[in-house]
């Protein structure tokens, strides 16, 4: 693979919400939240080394433990923070402006990412629990955003040795909360630093996709923050690092851009609602009445 190509992306995660998740949501709704319809925090530990062979991305597996602040992360697991907004009324769930909601979540990720590029990964769930029928309506979104200035206009495959990729894998293993790293002037792998990458021009990103040569759409978040942090950086090497093999390198060129919108009200395209079992961008329904 050496020719120029368009940079495509896959969905970052595939969610699995098990029965215990809905049982805990029911318990919270009845015993704690009652009519309180505010965001509740969630956390998922991603297992990047045990991805089913047939999967195109890392599973986002939510159980009742997702509601626990400290849910005993295992070695090699990567924590991802999220939140759930459970509506009291089905009609409120239906009427919510879903695109506006996801854009708001993307803006939060963007602002978090400006403070620390590793913090621009999260997920959000909207739900309605019909506790009479034990039927749950829900929709999970992973905010992915791209600013016009971070549009990639030119991408070309670069050679990358297994030895180099293993070095990055080892770094990510040792730095489980990091999504991004760079090379410094001594060619050591170090934490992201906008002053250093402006000189060394090598960015490595932890990837959740398993599709050959196609990174996760979360890459757009990192590239948007990078372009904001280092506006003069137009050409750089992008390493897509996977813990289970399939890492690859790209030479990337950003679009020329003289103007950037305000960081507090950025112009950005947002995507990330998960498709349902029918392949539609629409909510899912789980009927646990028979249980």
């Amino acid at each position: 693979m050496s020719s120029e190509k368009v940079l495509n992306y896959t969905a970052p995660f595939k969610s699995f919400l098990d029965t215990s998740f809905f049982q805990e949501l029911s318990r919270l709704k009845l015993d704690v939240l009652k009519l309180d319809s505010t965001f509740q925090p969630l956390v998922v530990n991603l297992d990047l080394r045990n991805i089913p062979k047939s999967a195109d991305q890392v599973p986002l597996f939510l159980t009742s433990r997702g509601f626990e602040e400290n849910n005993n992360r295992s070695d090699n697991e990567v924590p991802v923070r999220g939140k759930i907004l459970n509506f009291n009324v089905l009609d409120d769930f239906r009427k919510l402006d879903k695109q506006h909601f996801l854009r708001q979540r993307a803006l939060e990720c963007w602002e978090d990412g400006l403070r620390d590029i590793n913090n621009c990964v999260s997920f959000a769930i909207i739900s309605f629990a019909d506790l009479k029928k034990y039927r749950f309506y829900y929709w999970l979104g992973v905010p992915c955003f791209q600013r016009p200035s971070s549009t990639v206009v030119h991408v070309r495959s670069e050679p990358s040795s297994a030895y180099i990729c293993t070095k990055y894998q080892d770094w990510f293993d040792a730095n489980y909360s990091k999504w991004v790293c760079i090379l410094n002037e001594n060619e050591d792998i170090v934490n992201y630093d906008k002053h250093i990458i402006g000189k060394t021009k090598v960015l490595a990103v932890r990837d959740t996709s398993t599709v050959e040569n196609v990174p996760s759409a979360l890459t757009k978040n990192f590239l948007s923050v990078l372009r904001h942090d280092v506006p003069d950086l137009t050409d750089f090497k992008l390493l897509i690092i996977r813990q289970k093999g399939g890492s690859f390198a790209l030479k990337v060129t950003f679009v020329s851009s003289d103007s950037q919108s305000s960081p507090s009200n950025p112009d950005m395209k947002v995507s990330g609602w998960e498709k349902n079992m029918q392949g539609k961008l629409a909510p899912r329904v789980v009927d646990l009445g028979s249980l």
Partner: peptide, 21 residues
Amino acid sequence: DLPIDDIDELIQDMEIKDDYE
């Protein structure tokens, strides 16, 4: 309580057509 057919209709009603990818 919604019958199953109405649930399908409700879900279809919420479908987003033009999500950016």
